[in-house]
């Protein structure tokens, strides 16, 4: 991380901190709620204006673009080779986004989520801005909630980036037509796009559990890299465990278990079962690690 970025991050957070006391109508009738929303708004604008966030999203957008360009330049791909959906791209460009998700979900997407979620509290602490944020009358619990909302917003942005960039580059480089589903039925382009949006929602929800884990680790340390690395290591470990048949009993409990379950949205009729199961699983992780993060953050001595 460059010094300029550090500087800008610190500066924007400082602005954030400075903003709250002055932003509310100083003798406001309901100042606390207003403070929460203002805090969220400034958190989102700081997060998405950050150069690092933009770079992470650009890297995610590069995945479908690389895939599409590589396939366009190479000769025909044989059915059944490579990651799922890759062989269908030449016939229908709309598959680029889905193929990119299959490629990105095991490592690249969790990597970006880990960076953002691990930075939430530890980043502010390392910049020395955490105590300024806590001066705002929002309270620690609300600050934590706002930080988690920011991480969740990044999950949505990350999933949408891959899907939208993939769909656009696919439409640009390859023919577009009615989309064949896994079940062998074919749906119109409009319905396919709706399903891709549902897939983006599925993937965003899939990453919420990991975001909560990252938030918790972020409250434990004031070294953001440590929280990021631990979160990403957790994601990798979870996927390794998920691949071991010896611990099959554990599989339904792993937060990465349903990550590729978005394929159920490409069946006819759509199977919402996995969507629901995944949402419940991720909600469980959010509640558990959210509670741990809250307890840790409420009892933490904030020295920086």
């Amino acid at each position: 991380m460059s010094t300029t970025e550090n500087a800008s991050g610190a500066e924007s957070s400082a602005i954030t901190a400075g903003l709250h006391p002055s932003s509310g109508e100083s003798v406001a009738p309901a100042p606390r709620r207003g403070v929460g929303w203002a805090l969220l708004a400034s958190e989102l604008s700081v997060l998405f204006r950050r150069r690092r966030t933009i770079a992470l999203l650009a890297a995610l957008a590069a995945i479908p673009i690389l895939i599409a360009v590589a396939i366009r330049l190479s000769s025909s791909t044989r059915a059944g080779r490579g990651p799922a959906f890759l062989d269908q791209i030449t016939q229908n460009g709309l598959f680029v986004g889905v193929a990119a998700l299959v490629v990105a979900i095991p490592l690249f997407l969790p990597l970006t989520i880990g960076v953002v979620a691990g930075d939430t509290i530890a980043g502010e602490a390392s910049h020395g801005t955490l105590r300024y944020l806590l001066m705002a009358p929002a309270g620690r619990a609300r600050l934590l909630l706002v930080k988690f909302a920011g991480a969740a917003a990044f999950c949505v942005a990350a999933a949408l980036t891959v899907v939208v960039a993939g769909t656009l580059i696919g439409a640009l480089l390859f023919p577009v037509g009615p989309v064949p589903l896994l079940s062998g039925d074919t749906v119109s382009v409009g319905e396919a796009l709706l399903r891709f949006l549902a897939i983006a929602a599925f993937v965003a929800i899939s990453m919420l559990g990991m975001s909560a884990i990252g938030l918790f680790f972020s409250t434990l340390t004031s070294v953001p890299v440590g929280a990021m690395a631990t979160t990403i290591a957790f994601a990798v470990a979870s996927q390794i465990l998920d691949a071991l048949p010896q611990v099959a009993w554990l599989h339904p409990w792993l937060f990465s278990h349903q990550w590729l379950g978005f394929a159920d949205l490409l069946r006819q009729p759509i199977s919402w079962q996995t969507f629901g199961d995944n949402a419940v699983l991720q909600a469980g992780y959010v509640v558990v690690f959210g509670a741990l993060a809250l307890a840790r953050f409420l009892t933490k001595d904030v020295l920086s």
């Binding site: 409990w253 469980g284 509640v287 509670a291 809250l294 307890a295 840790r296 009892t299």
Partner: peptide, 20 residues
């Protein structure tokens, strides 16, 4: 007072796991 703040952190996971 510090200790009591950890109570929900331990109780919530316990409730979630028992429920699941």
């Amino acid at each position: 007072r510090r200790w009591t703040k950890w109570v929900p952190a331990l109780a919530i996971p316990a409730v979630v796991i028992v429920g699941a």
